[in-house]
């Protein structure tokens, strides 16, 4: 059992390493992708500078907290796309029957699929998050918490995408749905939770898991709370387990290549 886990991890490390090596083949492209993504994210600082000119606090957030929010969103999103980029194109792979080559390997299908690609620009997102923290609100304990929440955040984003993506096993038309749900999560993750009231808050904590991926951690980093901390950790585990279960349930319905493809018009 333990050796199996060890071997599995070894294969995953191999995959991620080779993925990044592939991206690095063209150094100029690799670096522009990373750098421009950081600039791209940086453009939103302008948005917030303008908004904070109009009002001193927005949704109970100061500009520093908004930066913390943005940083955590970027680095979680980044980490999830560096390690598990394929989860975000899972619906397309399911619908077009592209899981075949992962199903003939004696390793965990889900991990093999998820780790089979990476996104270079995500490295930019990931670094941007840490850069923002170091510039705007550096504190050593905060940095440690930030790193931890980047991991839980990445797991939550990945699991949520996996959950939504797995719907394609049942409904071919869900292909685009999961992409939009991931977008929705990102849209919410870059605005302070204080501007949402009542029903929306309920939605953000239960349906779209942005509350526990981003908002809670931001609050914890501002003022530490043990209860909240363990809620985040527990929730991450729960959502991950649920997503994995649904994926394997769906896999039984997987219908591979050619026929499906010729059936699409």
């Amino acid at each position: 059992m333990l050796t199996a886990v060890k071997n599995q991890i070894r294969v995953c490390v191999f995959s991620v390493k080779y993925n990044i090596m592939r991206e690095m083949l063209n150094k100029v492209t690799f670096l522009t992708n990373i750098l421009f993504m950081m600039l791209n994210n940086g453009a939103f600082i302008i948005q917030w500078l303008i908004l904070f000119r109009l009002k001193e606090e927005i949704g109970g957030y100061s500009i520093h907290q908004v930066m913390l929010l943005w940083g955590l969103s970027a680095s979680s999103y980044g980490l999830s796309h560096i390690l598990f980029a394929r989860v975000f194109s899972l619906p397309e792979m399911i619908v077009n029957g592209k899981l075949d080559c992962y199903l003939v390997l004696p390793k965990n299908v889900l991990l093999s699929v998820m780790t089979s690609a990476t996104s270079t620009s995500a490295i930019g997102d990931f670094l941007y998050g840490f850069l923002v923290i170091c510039i705007f609100c550096f504190r050593i304990d905060r940095l440690l918490l930030f790193s931890l929440f980047t991991i839980t955040g990445a797991l939550i984003i990945t699991s949520f995408s996996l959950l939504m993506g797995s719907l394609s096993f049942w409904f071919v038309r869900a292909e685009k749905f999961s992409m939009h749900m991931t977008n929705v999560m990102v849209s919410f993750a870059t605005y302070p939770d204080g501007i949402f009231k009542g029903g929306t808050r309920f939605l953000l904590y239960l349906v779209i898991p942005v509350g526990l991926a981003i908002y809670h951690p931001v609050h914890i980093m501002t003022s530490f709370d043990v209860g909240m901390f363990f809620t985040v950790i527990g929730y991450t585990g729960l959502l991950t387990a649920a997503a994995i279960t649904v994926f394997y349930l769906g896999l039984r319905r997987y219908s591979s290549g050619n026929l499906m493809e010729s059936g699409r018009m």
Partner: peptide
Amino acid sequence: GFISYFIMCFVFIKLWNYI
């Protein structure tokens, strides 16, 4: 895509309502 659009607008409605 309406989902993404709807949410985007929803966020902005909340934001401007607050500001």
